[in-house]
Each structure stands twice: as C-alpha cells, then as structure tokens.
C-alpha cells in the first residue's frame, strides 16, 4: 500500500509547525523547517517509514537542533562584535516584548527552559499530538515511563509559569 504523503501533510503540518515553533521560537523559521522536514520525507525514495508522523517529528527535532546550534554560533559571533564595538549593554529580550502575546510567549519559553530536556521534549511531543508509544520511540524513554514523565513535566511547567506570572504581576 502506497503512503499518502498528501494526507500526512494535511494532518501533521500544523502540529509540526507548532512543535518547531517551541523549539526555534521563530514562526517563519518554524514553518520553513516544517516544510523542509516534508521535503526530506518525500525525497526518501525507496524508503517508507513505519510511522510517517513520528518520523517527521524526529526529522523536525533534528532540524531544530541544528538550528539551535546555528543560533548559538550566531549569538557568539554577535557577542564578539558587540565587545569589539563597545556598544551599549543589550536590552533584555523580555523588555522588547511589547504586546501581550509576545510577553506570554516569552513566559512560556522561560517556563519551558526550567524543565529537564527529556521532560520538555515529551511534553512538546504530547502537545503536538503524538501518542505515548511515539513519544517513547522518539525520546528513547520506556513506554511505561511516559505517563510519569508527562505528569512531572506538566506539573513543573504549570508551577514555573505561575511563578513567572506572579513575578510579572508584582512588577506591575
């Protein structure tokens, strides 16, 4: 039976973009990487993944990792340029978030940053709609450990986010 990539695309693309967005924190880049994941999937002539959806998320996660490395390199480079130019100290990113949505996204980002890497990955995959089995396959965790991991990740996210909200409210 041939794989209907068009159907997979329709059912997965948005989830993939959302998943990637929380990895690279850039809407346009997330969309580009999601497309790139599909391009790679369609380029795989003669290879048919058992679970196309899970396969796509794995490719997307790798793309996001590469992207993160690239961003780190760029930041280092910019930092060097900054030192050389002796410009004024950088403005905190959160202060640049003017609208409410951006501020909220920054809070989520900070809350997610407080999670362990595996917990964060499991949580994002679950939120993107992957099953426990797919999450286990993706993260390398035992199938029986996914429930516990998600329980911990959810609780930690809620706790961290609430703390950030309280801090924000205290600042006025």
């Amino acid at each position: 039976m041939s794989l209907d990539w068009a159907e997979v695309y329709r059912s997965t693309f948005l989830d993939l973009v959302r998943f990637l967005h929380r990895k690279v924190w850039d809407a346009d880049r997330a969309q580009e990487l999601a497309q790139e994941a599909f391009v790679r999937a369609l380029s795989q002539t003669g290879r048919r993944p058992d679970n196309p959806r899970a396969w796509l998320f794995r490719v997307a996660a790798n793309l996001a990792k590469d992207e993160a490395r690239l961003v780190i390199r760029r930041k280092k480079h910019l930092a060097l340029l900054k030192v050389e130019a002796e410009t004024e100290p950088a403005v905190e990113p959160e202060l640049l978030q003017t609208d409410e949505r951006a501020a909220r996204e920054e809070a989520v980002r900070q809350a997610l940053a407080q999670l362990g890497e595996r917990d964060r990955e499991a949580l994002l995959l679950w939120d993107a709609g992957l099953s426990y089995r797919e999450i286990a396959e993706h993260t390398g965790l035992a199938l029986g450990a996914i429930g516990t991991t998600l329980a911990r990740a959810r609780a930690r996210l809620v706790e961290a986010y609430s703390a950030l909200e309280a801090k924000h409210a205290a600042r006025g």
Partner: peptide
C-alpha cells in the same frame, strides 16, 4: 494540571500559519 499545561503551551505558538499547498512542497522536492 494537564489542561493548564496545554493552555500555557498554546500561548507559545505561531499566531497564524499559512499552510502551503502540498503540491508546492512536492515541487520543491
């Protein structure tokens, strides 16, 4: 907690996604 977590995560996603037609992606391939 689960619903709250989902709500929190929904605050960090693309506001709007233009899903390109599949044919366009396939052409890129």
């Amino acid at each position: 907690v689960r619903d709250r977590a989902r709500f929190i995560l929904s605050g960090a996603g693309p506001a709007h996604v233009d899903v390109p037609p599949f044919e366009q992606v396939a052409a890129g391939v």
